[in-house]
Simulated scan of single mutants.
Amino acid sequence: MDRLKIERVGGVAGFGGPHLKSRGELAVSDLSSADQKTVESLFADPKKIPAARSGQADAFSYRITRGAQTIEVPEHAVPSTIKNSVKDVLE
Rank of each mutant, 00 (worst) to 15 (best):
A27L: 15
Q69Y: 04
H19E: 14
K87S: 09
H19D: 13
S54Y: 07
T38V: 04
Q36N: 04
H19M: 15
S32V: 07
P74A: 03
K87H: 07
V86C: 06
R66D: 03
V89I: 12
G10A: 11
K48V: 00
D58K: 01
R53L: 08
S41F: 00
V39N: 01
G17E: 06
H76T: 09
G67K: 03
E91S: 15
G24W: 05
M1L: 11
G11H: 08
E72F: 07
M1P: 12
E75K: 13
A57R: 09
R66T: 01
F60C: 11
E75I: 10
L90R: 15
F43R: 02
E25H: 03
D88R: 11
H76V: 11
E72S: 12
I82P: 04
D88T: 08
A44Q: 13
F43M: 03
E25F: 03
G11V: 06
R63C: 10
V73L: 05
V39W: 02
Q56C: 02
I6R: 10
R66Q: 00
V89Y: 11
S22T: 14
R23I: 12
V9F: 14
P46E: 01
E72D: 12
L31I: 03
K87L: 06
I49S: 00
G10M: 12
A13F: 13
L31G: 03
R3G: 05
E91D: 15
K48W: 00
A52M: 14
A57C: 05
R63D: 08
P18I: 08
T81R: 10
A13L: 13
H19N: 15
R66Y: 00
M1I: 07
K5I: 15
V78M: 10
Q56F: 05
L20Q: 14
D30M: 06
L90K: 14
